[in-house]
Amino acid sequence: MASFNCFALAFLMALSFASIDVGVAARHLLQQPQTPSLLKKTFPPLPSFPKPSFPRPSIPSFPKPSIPSFPKPSIPSFPRPGVLPPLPSRLPSRPKATLAPLPSIPSVPQIPTAIPSIPFFSPPLSHSTP
């Protein structure tokens, strides 16, 4: 797969370099001075020839053949595709499903959300005198 990617990349690069040369050549041709109309050759008009007239051949008339009539086969009637049969007027009762009781889940302990108060102790008195 990697070799295909390298090949594709090399191919795209070659195409881009080729288009650069074409672009340079086109610009070079556009920058050439226009040739004067005197140097262009004018050709004389082609002579007109009379159209030949051929005699039309007469088409003989042939008698038309008669097509024999064959008996047509009878096509059996099938229900049309896409047409659904009618629904019954009374739907059958469905059985009642009973679920087993769920096992009891242990309760998750509660995490306290209030921050307990921290008792505030006053700092010790200083023994220095002012």
Rank of each mutant, 00 (worst) to 15 (best):
R80W: 08
P68K: 09
L87W: 05
R80N: 13
P95F: 01
P68D: 02
K64E: 06
P103T: 00
L84M: 10
S93L: 14
R80Q: 13
K72Y: 00
P65I: 02
P63S: 08
S58P: 06
F62Y: 15
S77W: 06
S89Q: 12
P103I: 00
P95E: 04
L99N: 08
P81V: 09
P95A: 12
P76I: 01
F78V: 14
R90C: 06
S104G: 02
T98Q: 01
P88L: 07
L102S: 10
P63W: 00
S61D: 11
P92I: 09
P68V: 03
S66E: 05
I75W: 03
K64F: 01
P81A: 13
S104E: 06
T98Y: 02
I67Q: 07
L102D: 08
I59A: 10
P85E: 05
L102N: 04
P71H: 10
A100L: 15
L91S: 10
A100R: 15
P60D: 10
S104I: 10
P79E: 01
A97F: 10
F70P: 02
F78K: 08
S74W: 01
P95I: 07
R90Y: 09
P65A: 03
F62L: 15
S66M: 05
R80V: 11
T98F: 01
G82S: 15
S58Y: 03
F70W: 12
P86Y: 01
